[in-house]
Design a protein around this nucleic acid. Sequence first.
RNA 1: GUGGAUGUAGCUCAGUUGGUUAGAGCACCAGAUUGUGGUUCUGGGGGUCGCGGGUUCGAAUCCCGUCUUUCACCCCA
Length: 455
Amino acid sequence: MKPSLPKGTRDFNPEEMLRRNHILNTITGVYRRYGYQQIETPAMENLSTLTGKYGDEGDQLLFRILNSRLHESKKKDQVLEEFQRSLEQNINSDILTERALRYDLTVPFARYVVMHQHEITFPFRRFQVQPVWRADRPQKGRYREFYQCDADVIGSDSLLNEAELVFIISEVFRSLNIPVTIKLNNRKVLTGISEKCGMPEKIIDITVAIDKLDKIGESKVIEELSAKGINDTSIEKIKPFFGFSGSNQDKINFLKTELKDSATGTQGVTELETIIGLCKNEQLELDITLARGLNYYTGAIFEVKANDVEIGSVCGGGRYDDLTGVFGLKGLSGVGISFGIDRIYDVMLESGLFSDQLLSHSYTQLMFVNFGDKESQYCLELAQQLRTKGIAVELYPENAKMKKQMAYADANKIKYVALIGDSEMSSDTVTVKNMQSGEQKTIPVNQIAHLITQG
RNA sequence: GUGGAUGUAGCUCAGUUGGUUAGAGCACCAGAUUGUGGUUCUGGGGGUCGCGGGUUCGAAUCCCGUCUUUCACCCCA
């Protein structure tokens, strides 16, 4: 049979893993320096945990897992009936599917917090690095399986958390040498806008439409707004927000006057002003049209774009005031961000930001050439001794031709090769070749470790 | 889910208006060199031309279907 992969999934070879881990280690290193602790959750969740949290669009994109052994079910009539219904409309029937693959890390985290609330000391800073799955149609920078690197702090309303998350974003992308713009907005401002035009119940439609402004332009957005049942007088009241440009401070002043009649809107503006004041970050840009589709955001929202590569957002997040509420724990506010390492990888590759040094040598520091049974047994013991000293060592497993063994060391970028044949064994020496310089010398066996660690 | 492009060796790609045994570079394997990799030289292996139908005396080439990858919409990391 012909081997193949499910659409939108990929293998990662050793070279790619070195680069992916470089990104990953950069992010988790920063997270740790800010006090975040790692957790993991299962790949699959109960479907009911996930549905209704991401909006209609998100629900459609969940990978559902068909229940096992349906052919042995005692309720086949019911199964058939539910299946037929599922062909007509998007329903969730436990008898067909009760589990789904996780869609993000935030909702499973909210579930985790509620289930473990008695062991957690709040405020709780956690980070999590795991794959998520979305039944989207793949395209550039969009995969059906991809990794998210989340950091969230839950149980604190303080805007210091937002500010620290901006520091984290800034530090990560500075470490990776990726020029970015950190876009910031606040859902309360969007609420204020929908209140101002007299249609607070249409906030979702309005925000989704506004979000598209930079993509499809003002006229198309207006078209979409009327299609969603927003009348012309309301649209006129939204319009001023479209075209406004200026510095962050200009935008804040503008919003302050425009939204002065909306308590929520004014609250949002104040929050934005506080966060921007705390961050003092030049990459931070207040973007009134930033909306983000995920339903659960209630306060600050972030989205990070790479300046030099067209690929969608490389990091996103925001504040959610009551995500744990649906699981029975009310009044717990959280805020978090998520890096998409697959996209960051694509950006770095396209911009040539991976240093050659990442791939210049392997973890293995020394390889023993295999000259036969007697010699390989001797080398096996020597290798064990070196490993206890923390040196990464390989012994070539076959008594193959020298040329083949050397070519292996070369292909794997192993810096040192040790040759121990009859003459070396009888004289307690080892011939060590530096594969980068080509230099070779014979030294006493007990000096190998020193040579390798000291160069 | 809607629309466009794409598919020839492990990789990057040639392949004329449809015409005989489908090519190149790189990679791989072997030898030159039985204790020495990278350079060089010589030789070699490897392709149901994505898959399935159709048109034709004849299809990698034309037509239909299907799948993959990819781009856009939608949404997002």
